[in-house]
Every structure is written in C-alpha cells, then in structure tokens.
Amino acid sequence: MSEHTTTAPIPTLEIKNLVVEYRTEDGIVHAVNGLDLRIEKGKTLGLVGETGAGKTTTGLAILRLVAQPPGVIVDGSIHLNGENLLMKSEKEMEKIRGKQVSMIFQDPMTSLNPVTRVEDQIAEVIELHEHLSWNESLAKARDMLELVGIPGERGVDYPHQFSGGMKQRVVIAIALACSPQLLISDEPTTALDVTIQAQVLQLMKNLREKYQMSMLMITHDLGIVVEICDLVSIMYAGRVVEHGSLEDIFNNTRHPYTEGLFNSLPNLEDRKAKLKPIKGLMPDPSNLPPGCAFCPRCDYAMEICHTDKPGKVYRTEDHFVECHLYSEQNIGEKVIGK
C-alpha cells in the first residue's frame, strides 16, 4: 500500500470496504456491503443501480449524514484527499460539509426550507465557511443565483415561488457556493422533466469545468452516465459488481446485471423492439442470499453462485467484475449475451 501512495497521486475520494447497516426493529437492513470507490481529482464517477441498491446511503455516508439511528457505518474507510472521514469528530465534519464536500439531493421540491428566503439559504453556507459578513454573503449568494441562471433579484423569493427546475438550480447553487472539491449528486435530474433535465445537466457540466471538481454522480439513468461521467461503477445490493471506464462498461460489458440494465433500455434503432426487463426484484436487503446477490435473477447462474460470493476479476487495470462466470483466463472474452 505504502509504495502505492508515493507513486500515484492521492485520489479525491477513496472508499474501501464500506459497510452501512440500518438496524431496525424488524431486522438489520444491509444497505451497503463492502463497497469500494475511487475518484481521482477532476473526474466524475457514475454510481449506477436500481432503487434500493444503496447509492444514496453511500453518498450520505461520505458526509456522515446517514440517519442515526437506525443507520450505522459498521466498517470500512472513506478517505477524502488522504484523510479518513470516519475518524473525524462531528465538529471537524461540520467544517468539511458544504466546504470540501457538498451534496445535491434527489428531490428539489423538498430539499429547500419552505419558510426561508432562497438567498438566505445560499448565503448561510457562504457565511459559515468563507467567514464573510452577512451582507457580503448575501451579495455572493445572488452571484451564485446568476451563475445557475436565475436573476439575482429573485433571491428574496421563497421556494414555493420557484418551479422545480429553478429549485434544483438553487440547490446546485447552495452546493457549489463554497467551491467544493467533491460534489455528490444524488439523481439531480430524476424529479425534473426531460427538457429541464438537459439544461440542469449542461449547467452541472459547465460548473464542473469551472471549478475543477471531482463528482460522484448517483443515478439510475445510463443516458446521464454517457453524458457526464468518466468512470462508471455498477452497484447492486450494496456492492459494486462492475467498474470501469465508459468504454469498458458500454462496449465491453461483462456482468450479467450490467447487461440486463442495457437490455432494459428502449432501443432507438428499432422502436418496435420489446423492452427486456431484468426478471424478478432486487433481493430484500435485510435478507440477502448467501452467494452472489444477483444470482436469483441471473440467466447464467451456476451452482457456485448460490453458495459463494464472487471476488473481483480484472479485465484491465481499471475494469473489474464480480461474477463467477469470469476467471483470469476468460475475462478477455464476453461469455454473456444473446
């Protein structure tokens, strides 16, 4: 490990073996089960998976905002620029949140405080971290509004006077107000309609260039991934089951689950083609199967899949897959598909 750190630059974010559980009265929900992530400076990683795969929990764990109780970060490490966030005190975390790491939440309709002026909600984070006076913070808040395409004088309005797309811009303005090194975007466009989605994505792309941010893009939309990400991690039942560059994931798909995700997209060339959804449902995270979590839904499941958890198999230095179908010998070729 030590010789690794001397040669390679320190990544903005490195998560190792993260385990998060929700301990409820009805049992333990295994939301994240040994997750590994790595985002280099200025890069964007797409974290892709179905609802309930543990994507949002992962994002919240980075900020240490997993609701507690019932959530508990059981194991693992989360390093931001080489420093383990899980070892930080709550006071130290408060200095990191909003300043070094920000998060854009999924639903702009509910993410803003309904009884506080929009500019106050932006200025608050500026005053806190940049140690400016309230009036200077307000002035900067209006600049931030302009930056995301809202006239600064609208800042005196309240969230209910904004449309959904504008609210999401405000949320983005809050997240970017202190130029964070890492931006976690939790499905930033899911709650918006398609035309607004494109605008918001374009805005995020521009701002990413401007601020040289690293980004964790949580999404279930592969279209967004192509649009904005450099690397992709496919998440299933709290683990990354396949990881690689856009090229690796889209053109050298290995995992049956990833394949299934692609098959369930509408085919633009052949519009009459039927969608091929992945059969079955995500396993109950409080009762995960002993072997591969995907095997109950997998067309290629073998005996071993039901009993043993698959390990990582690397195709290239970056591209890996967790699936029993592959070994060092056959990872070069694709063994799934029609």
């Binding site: 900020l63 905002l65 006071k91 975390m93 408060e94 200095k95 990191i96 949140r97 909003g98 300043k99 920000s102 998060m103 939440f105 639903d107 509910t110 993410s111 803003l112 405080n113 309904p114 009884v115 506080t116 608050e124 984070v125 806190l128 971290h129 949320v171 809050i174 997240a175």
Partner: peptide
C-alpha cells in the same frame, strides 16, 4: 424532512439546524 438534511449538508451544527431551520417550521 429533506430540507433539514440539506441544512446539515451545509455544515451547520445540529443545534443551529434546529434553531434556524426546524423551529420555524
């Protein structure tokens, strides 16, 4: 509520989140 989480993600301490964001609501 979500906006309480947003306020927390700004780096506000829990007590100021309660004071500035939760109380009025």
């Amino acid at each position: 509520q979500d906006y309480i989480r947003t306020a927390r993600s700004k780096g506000l301490s829990y007590s100021s989140v309660i004071r500035k964001h939760a109380l009025k609501n």
